[in-house]
Design a protein around this nucleic acid. Structure first.
Length: 479
RNA sequence: GGCCUCAUCGUCUAAUGGUUAGGACGAAAGCUUUUCAAGCUUUAAAUCGGAGUUCGAUUCUCCGUGGGGCUACCA
């Protein structure tokens, strides 16, 4: 059997990290099996639809590098199909028209709640005669055109008696009592299908072999199975993924802060690091390996190895993974990735590359770069008191900086980190200075920061003139 | 409330009917050191509870407890 899976989000807002995780699991499975991964936009809810969401979903998949082989398909463009299948179900007696008002349904629900009974539709419209339905629909059953005389109605699935069970690839056998399942609305009064109808029809039409989706769908799977049975179709395999949780262990959502899948791009995470981190949430290779290339992930992936329990999205580990990837990049690549984050820095590419080389191993995400490198691009502002090393005095500091400045002015100034360090340390030894009382203020003079790359790294990038100029400014701050 | 589901360090997780319950992030300490990182070394840190099965259960079963999901003409 050829593997065909789909990522089927609804365009109701910015896609979040749980969406991309689900997409990743589908994508990995498809790639591991040499199957097809397709994108289907489930835009059947006119009320919740947010313009631009579909584009964001596509952009997200592109940024993360989860390429799809087919689609995007839009359900809103396939309404005729769902209506056709709804009619087929009605003709077969597996679905029926319902004219009940939302008010009546609300009352029903309220009453059920008051009696502590599960709320279910009471099948009030199930026994309507064909003539009455004909009359109320106003224009025959074949196809309706809303608002032309007829009453509003929906089509409901008639849940049969018995039990419905299925084998979930991750969770094993799951069984439901049909008596507890509501007669689900399949076609809404606006002519749009609900998720349940559209999803089943499309999965059938698109020959989906494995439905891999989040656990929130587990409870509605029996409805889907019943639908497949009603149509006389063979259901696909099901795998219900654990949920990605916020720090409070509830389903990840907007209120958990910045979890928009594309927000991570703007924060300076690398897509390959995101994928690596995400893959290891809820899944593992069974080895101690933590860093995986995309190819390694595909190779190691298996659906069976996915966990059942939900996983909390853990930022610290993501930062660590991202740092690992950032450090592995060549300087040229690093500079390329960093560019959008250094838009304000006006400098030659060569200069930027030299600059970035000094901070590569201390950056966790690219958005930190401006703060880490600002002093390369302009004279830093800082309090003169910062120049004094913890074990030194203002007088000593002034003396050391003055002599260091003079030394640099009158001697060679190698534009090589190691060489400059050697020359400088030889000078410090010769003068019998403390290393810290000299290098700390030198570093602060150049960076204006409590923490920064080494003074030699900075000095080499800035060059002799600028280095001496900044030493002079520092000295003047010490009077 | 009903239905479904899940349960190993703070977090992500590994493992087995018999182990000192392993790794990673984070934390702490040390080395290095002009600072911060990086790197290396080390430490602390977990099988939700109770029965049962068994020579032996973290693992299997049941019952609790706790978490989560669903319970819409939302997905």
């Amino acid at each position: 059997m050829s593997v065909r899976v789909r990522f089927a989000p609804s365009p109701t807002g910015d896609p979040h990290i749980g969406s991309i995780w689900t997409a990743l699991m589908n994508w990995l499975f498809a790639r591991a099996k040499g199957g097809v991964f397709l994108l289907r936009i489930e835009d059947t809810d006119q009320a919740r639809l947010i313009p631009g969401s579909s584009e964001k979903i596509i952009e997200m998949l592109k940024w993360y590098g989860l390429n799809y082989d087919e689609g995007p398909f839009y359900q809103s463009k396939r309404l005729n199909l769902y209506q056709k299948y709804a009619d087929i179900l009605v003709e077969k007696g597996n679905a029926y028209y319902c004219f009940c008002s939302t008010e009546r349904l609300a009352e029903l629900r309220k009453a059920a709640e008051a009696n502590k009974q599960p709320s279910k539709y009471d099948r009030h419209c199930l026994s309507l005669s064909a003539e009455e339905i004909q009359k109320r629909v106003g224009g025959g059953l074949a196809r309706r055109s809303l608002g032309e005389g007829g009453e509003k109605f929906v089509v409901r699935l008639k849940i049969p008696e018995g039990k419905t069970s299925f084998i979930d690839l991750i969770r094993g056998k799951i069984e439901f009592e049909n008596a507890l399942i509501d007669d689900q609305v399949l076609l809404k009064s606006d002519g749009f299908p609900t998720y349940h109808l559209a999803n089943v029809v499309d999965d059938y039409e698109m020959k989906i072999s494995h439905v891999i989706r989040a656990e929130e769908w587990l409870s509605s799977t029996p409805k889907h199975i019943i639908l497949y049975q009603a149509f006389g179709w063979k259901p696909p395999e099901f795998a219900h993924l654990p949920l990605i949780l916020g720090a409070d262990r509830s389903k990840l959502s907007k209120r958990h802060g910045a979890t928009g899948a594309l927000a991570f791009r703007n924060e300076g995470y690398l897509p390959e690091a995101m994928l690596n981190f995400l893959a290891l949430l809820g899944w593992n290779s069974g080895t101690d390996q933590e860093i995986f290339s995309r190819e390694e992930l595909v190779k190691a992936f298996s659906l069976e190895a996915i966990n059942k329990a939900g996983a909390i999205f853990n930022r610290e580990k993501l930062d660590w993974v991202n740092g690992m990837y950032l450090r592995k990049l060549s300087i040229a690549e690093f500079a390329e990735r960093a560019k959008p984050f250094l838009a304000d820095a006006k400098a030659e590419n060569v200069f930027i590359e030299k600059t970035l080389a000094t901070v590569q191993e201390r950056v966790k995400k690219l958005s930190e770069l401006p703060a880490l490198t600002h002093f390369y691009f302009k004279q830093p502002e800082y309090d003169g008191a910062l120049l004094v090393w913890k074990k030194a005095t203002l007088e000593i500091t002034k003396d050391r900086l003055t002599k260091l400045s003079a030394f640099y002015s009158s001697s060679e100034f190698p534009l090589d980190e190691k060489a400059l360090e050697e020359v400088t340390k030889a000078f410090i030894t010769k003068e019998q200075f403390e290393t810290g009382e000299t290098l700390w203020p030198m570093r602060v003079a150049l960076s204006g920061e409590k923490a920064s790359p080494s003074p030699f790294q900075i000095a080499v990038v800035l060059g002799k003139e600028e280095t001496i100029a900044r030493l002079q400014i520092a000295i003047s701050k010490l009077s």
